[in-house]
């Protein structure tokens, strides 16, 4: 448990020290919200949620890429793969929740009339999905630029795809969009439950993906035998 918490803590410390990057990441959801504010509140809130998802997944991508060379030696220092990826995920979720607070308050201050419980759930889903999503991309693509471009592609697809189409359900942040509809448009409960279920399933699926990649990359190699100290 101590190892998990230590990795989480160091992830938070590292991210909070990247102040420039963090500020730019926070700027994105804010811009997304403000740019659609005059047109339609629903679009504005959905863009905000997508912006939070983008910000957290980019932070996760950076954190994973930065740890690429450190992790093998931490493995030798006594960590198991799950300490490393779960600890990092925990740290990213913590940072994501902290980032979400001002964006939860933003529509409130703006005087938006919506279901705030729904907004909280949608933000939770965005953060929950974004951390393993960014980590998975960071684990599969070794360079930050490639990862960022892929993230950008996914977010653009998410933004442009028809939410009612079946393909939309395959996009990672569909859950927060669905919950946002319930939040803003006062639709039936089905939107909320579908969204929550999707968020839970996608988070679990991505976390399993991260676990699989990390376990392969940080596995004990078969050629190495550990003998008892003689």
């Amino acid at each position: 448990m101590n190892r998990l918490v230590t990795v989480a803590e160091m992830t938070v410390r590292e991210l909070l020290r990247r102040r420039g990057v963090l500020l730019l990441l926070l700027l994105m959801p804010l811009t997304f919200y403000l740019i659609r504010r005059d047109a339609y509140l629903g679009q504005s809130v959905r863009s905000l949620l997508l912006g939070v998802g983008w910000a957290v997944s980019t932070a996760a991508l950076f954190a994973t890429t930065a740890a690429r060379e450190l992790e093998p030696r931490l493995r030798l220092a006594g960590y198991r793969p799950h300490h490393l990826y779960l600890g990092r995920m925990l740290g990213l979720w913590t940072v994501g929740l902290v980032i979400s607070v001002p964006f939860f308050l933003l529509p409130m201050i703006d005087g938006a009339d919506l279901r705030y419980g729904g907004l909280a759930a949608a933000l939770l889903c965005s953060v929950a999905v974004a951390a393993p999503f960014g980590m998975l991309i960071g684990a599969l693509l070794p360079r930050e630029l490639e990862g960022t471009l892929l993230l950008l592609t996914v977010v653009t697809v998410q933004m442009l795809i028809d939410p009612a189409g079946s393909g939309a359900r395959l996009t990672p942040f569909w859950s927060s969009r669905e919950i946002a509809t319930w939040t803003v448009d006062n639709t039936d409960q089905g939107y909320l439950s579908r969204g929550l279920l999707h968020g839970l399933a996608v988070t679990a699926l991505l976390a399993v993906g991260v676990a699989a990649v990390a376990s392969v990359r940080l596995r004990r190699r078969r050629h190495l035998r550990h003998l008892p100290v003689g």
């Binding site: 030798l76 050629h223 035998r225 003998l227 100290v229 003689g230």
Partner: peptide
């Protein structure tokens, strides 16, 4: 193959 007796540092 490699056999190691004890803890490794790298």
């Amino acid at each position: 193959e490699v056999a190691v007796s004890g803890r490794l540092g790298y």
